[in-house]
Design a protein around this nucleic acid. Sequence first.
DNA 1: CTCAGATCCTGTGCGC
DNA 2: TGCGCACAGGATCTGA
Length: 271
Amino acid sequence: MPELPEVEIVCRGLEKCVTGKAILSVQVRNRHLRQLVDRSLAKKLIGKKILRIRRRAKYILFDLGEWCLVNHLGMTGNWRQGSKSELGVHDHIFIQLQNKIEIIYNDPRRFGLLELIKSEDLEQHRLFKHLGVEPLSSEFNEEYLFKNVQGKNRSIKSLIMDQTIVVGIGNIYASESLFVARVLPQKSAKDLTRKECKRLVASIVKTLEKSLQLGGSSISDFRHFGGENGEFQNSFKVYDREGEFCLRCGTSICRDTLSGRSTYWCPQCQR
DNA sequence: CTCAGATCCTGTGCGC
DNA sequence: TGCGCACAGGATCTGA
């Protein structure tokens, strides 16, 4: 379930483990991810040193200097430390680093992505050039959101999940943030008042930061790079709580499909 | 241009 | 128990 907090947590785990280490070998066991992994990726990576790990939107960036290895976890991607002998069916990439560090990219649904890009071309690359602002930066504020809802007929939920406007928010944090802001997910974006935009920005920031503090959400199989669970799933206020009581007013939580995604809200608290 | 829906893929959990 | 179906963290393409 990699949304911003989960991707950030994986980055932090990777960073401790791989920073400063050179790549000794790479095995691409299955090239069929969301986009076909370049045949020559392994060869190109060997000998390069991982200078640092960064996150942009929901992408993990392995900074190699002149080059940057870009990874997206899709729905089910994850990295872990592990040896060659334990590799299983969905362990698609195996990388050996200096000091006997070995990391594995696992992704059952294969919606993830791995691509080597010239560092200087990153911002203009097709994967990055349309991305909106980071939600935990000062660029994401009341003014910005209010400007971006003007004239938009789409639901506010689909708008905050739109990575060309603000990045990192996925299906869980959209529902959770809208609950905290007391805004109905179905509400037409153009109908949000300036005040509601202010509340929503604050709620998104608060929700993402709280999840980060708790190590992200571990639903299904998400684990930290070190193998630990996140704990934010125990703090969900509406997500996956259809029919359960609203923690604020006691009303039964509703669920419906909005733009193809499950959406949860309290019909009493959210307007 | 905008927006909703289908699509890619495998695993899980539910009802029958 | 076993089967079929609905659904699952995302991004992208199509077409209305």
